[in-house]
Simulated scan of single mutants.
Amino acid sequence: MKNRVTELLRIRYPIIQGGMQWVGLAELASAVSNAGGLGVLTALTQPTPEDLRQEIARMHAMTDKPFGVNLTILPTINPPPYAEYVAAIIEGHVNVVETAGNSPKEFITLFHQNDIKIIHKCTTVRHALSAERNGVDAVSIDGFECAGHPGEDDVPGLILIPAAVRALQIPVIASGGIGDGRGFAAALALGAEGINMGTRFCVTQEAPIHQNIKQALVAATERDTRLIFRTMHNTARVFKNAISDEVVKMESRPGGCQFEEIRSLVAGVRGRAALASGSVQDGVITAGQVIGLIDDIPSCADLIERIVADAKQYLAKATTYFS
């Protein structure tokens, strides 16, 4: 394939693996890059900038293809040392940075000076326009179907993607609710020039997640996600299990609940332990509604080739409807 995204990122297919906390490790990211997509390490999965340097080095040992690093800039009281993570990315000769959360404005010039392309993930057109003005190279637009944080506007991809394409001059990458060739074809038809997949890449052979978790996602339907943190205006879409059910129950009480009341349930270390141990009910597991379309656990290479082949087939079939 050839379009602005493949040329910008120097990849074979415009298929990007989302930067996922606890999951964006070299084993998965290298498999995606080797298969022709863009694998992405997750910076803040690594406890320190030095750990990220080591993970980047592992990545270079596992692939000679382009890859990226996700850097999510969080609005916290005690933020991580972002400048040091940025330095590790630059020193590691990374090709692409996927930024998310707060604006990456203060790092854009530095990344560009080191020939690093910037994809900023947004959930609204207004934030995408701001990112474009700040100088990012592409935008990944996240619809309401997505795993993780879909924002507070609740706009699904069928509307959000073409709205972003209409408003922006830089390439738009569709994210949220995409897991097969039909979704890829639809994204291209809506004007996007690539796709970003998180949940689908979690259910692959190379994903560093316990098999029990993968099997639970395969068995799930599109109705098996929950929206938590709604009352706190920090909505997150996660897998429906005992933990997320309890959080929703507590938020639904008259007057809601305070974050401190659910902190132990939603703690990141607890979710990470669940992913590693396979204890499906024991932690928050991030997942999008696309789980309803996932029914196998392929290798990343087989998945990407299948998505591309199926997209071509669906797009070709659609053209036969016109005389």
Rank of each mutant, 00 (worst) to 15 (best):
R4N: 15
T6P: 09
T6K: 07
Y13P: 10
P14V: 06
L25M: 13
A26I: 08
A29C: 10
G36L: 14
G37I: 09
T45N: 07
T45Q: 01
D51H: 13
R53C: 03
Q54T: 06
E55C: 00
A57Y: 03
M59G: 04
D64H: 06
K65G: 05
P66A: 03
T72R: 03
I73V: 06
P75D: 03
P75S: 07
N78F: 13
E84R: 13
E91G: 04
H93R: 12
V94T: 02
V97M: 10
V97C: 09
T99Y: 05
T99E: 08
G101A: 07
N102Q: 14
K105L: 00
E106T: 00
I108A: 01
T109L: 07
H112G: 03
N114E: 00
D115N: 14
D115T: 02
I116M: 01
T123R: 03
V125L: 10
V125K: 15
A128G: 14
A128W: 04
S130T: 07
R133M: 07
G135Y: 01
V136G: 06
D142L: 14
G143Q: 09
E145T: 14
P156I: 14
G157T: 13
L160A: 08
A164C: 13
V165Q: 13
A167W: 11
L168I: 11
A174D: 08
G179I: 12
D180K: 13
F184N: 10
L188D: 13
L188W: 01
A189C: 07
L190H: 05
L190V: 09
G191Y: 04
I195A: 09
N196V: 14
F201V: 12
V203Y: 07
Q205N: 12
Q205K: 15
A207E: 05
Q211P: 00
Q211G: 00
I213D: 04
K214D: 01
A216Q: 06
D224F: 00
I228N: 12
N234I: 04
V238H: 04
A242L: 06
I243A: 10
D245N: 12
V248N: 02
M250I: 11
E261L: 12
R263Q: 09
L265K: 12
G268L: 10
V269D: 08
R270G: 05
L275G: 04
L275P: 08
A276E: 10
V280R: 02
G283C: 04
G283R: 02
V290Y: 11
I291C: 00
L293G: 05
L293T: 14
L293I: 08
D295R: 08
I297R: 03
S299C: 06
I304S: 09
R306S: 15
I307Q: 13
D310P: 05
D310L: 05
D310F: 01
K312I: 00
K312R: 12
K317Y: 04
A318D: 07
T319M: 14
T319K: 14
S323K: 15
